[in-house]
């Protein structure tokens, strides 16, 4: 671990790691679009004011400016909310960053429904789908603060653009701290022989809770944290589906084009059990009073995952 972690906040962990990366490499620069207090790039700004670039509320220019930095020997980190970082600047990311495979790191903060109060314009339901569709892009979705730190250390080595989606809220730690990590790793957090849940982000914890509930009914569920959405570790995904009576994917993201689609694509040539997707069902977000409340409203719960497992295993 490149920093000593005393927080359960993914965005705080991200901001602290960015500072640490800045200490280790003078070519690290950060670009921000007036959301630095939320994305936590304010920490980098305090530490390295000369390498922090406040780009104003102009995400397209921010992405292409990062392109210029990357073409001139720097390692830029582009920061905004996930919905703006990916959607507002999609063409810039596609053409100027992904085509030439530049080492630009894009942080999509307040991903999924995690910015529960701000509603549909600020919540990203499709960021992984659109970033995954881009050739050369790596797509990361950390499960907790510990894995965020591991990823930040590892992603500097990726030869090409990286998109990392960061949840706004404190989340329970599920990652074992002392295990080795590399980009592409699929974490087997719970063993099981009846069904497998491939989950990402906060849905991993929900899947672990679902597995506890199902264990009491005699259904033995394996839970995997799939945090590298692209390139997907297809071999491992296939191996974990072998012999299972049910397969479920769970993500805080639309069921179209995200983890569920990626897993289904990976299994397409294999003989496999029925698959059910737990995710946002082709709709936008909404404002809510609390994070758990909005997750409940969108069926992103341990109960929904348990129901999906029951339906796929035929119980």
């Amino acid at each position: 671990m490149i920093i000593k972690l005393e927080t359960k906040s993914l965005r705080e962990a991200y901001g602290l790691c960015l500072v640490e990366l800045g200490k280790r490499n003078k070519d690290v620069v950060a670009l921000e679009a007036d959301l630095g207090k939320s994305t936590r790039t304010v920490l980098f700004k305090e530490a390295f004011p000369e390498r922090f670039f406040e780009m104003g509320i102009a995400e397209q220019n921010m992405a292409s400016t990062a392109t210029g930095f990357a073409l001139t020997g720097k390692m830029p980190f582009v920061n905004s909310f996930a919905v703006f970082a990916t959607g507002r600047a999609f063409d810039q990311i596609r053409n100027s960053i992904c085509i030439p495979k530049l080492k630009v790191r894009i942080c999509g903060s307040s991903c999924g429904l995690s910015d529960f109060g701000d509603g549909k314009t600020h919540q990203s339901v499709e960021d992984m789908a659109i970033m995954r569709a881009l050739p050369n892009m790596t797509v990361l979705s950390p499960v907790d603060a510990v894995e965020t730190v591991m990823m930040m250390e590892a992603l500097v080595e990726v030869d090409g653009p990286v998109y990392i989606r960061i949840n706004r809220n404190d989340l329970p730690i599920v990652t074992p701290e002392n295990e080795p990590y590399k980009i592409g790793k699929t974490w087997e957090l719970r063993k099981g022989k009846d069904a497998v849940v491939y989950a990402t982000g906060y849905m991993v914890k929900k899947a672990l809770d679902a597995a506890e509930e199902l264990a009491r009914e005699g259904i033995d569920v394996k839970v995997l944290n799939v945090s590298t959405i692209k390139p997907l570790d297809t071999k491992t995904i296939i191996a974990h589906a072998k012999g299972m009576k049910g397969i479920v994917t769970a993500e805080e993201h639309t069921i179209m084009g995200g983890l569920g689609s990626a897993v289904a694509e990976a299994l397409r040539k294999e003989s496999h059990a029925p698959i059910e997707f737990v995710g946002i069902k082709d709709t936008f977000g909404t404002s809510a009073k609390a994070y758990e409340e909005i997750l409940e409203a969108y069926g992103l719960t341990a109960k929904a995952i348990a129901d999906a497992v029951r339906s796929t295993v035929g119980k």
Partner: peptide
């Protein structure tokens, strides 16, 4: 990589800053 119009000045600004 340019051609999707409107992006060159931003890229050039990033180069100038670097």
């Amino acid at each position: 990589v340019t051609g999707s119009l409107g992006q060159g000045l931003s890229i050039a600004t990033g180069m100038s800053l670097a």
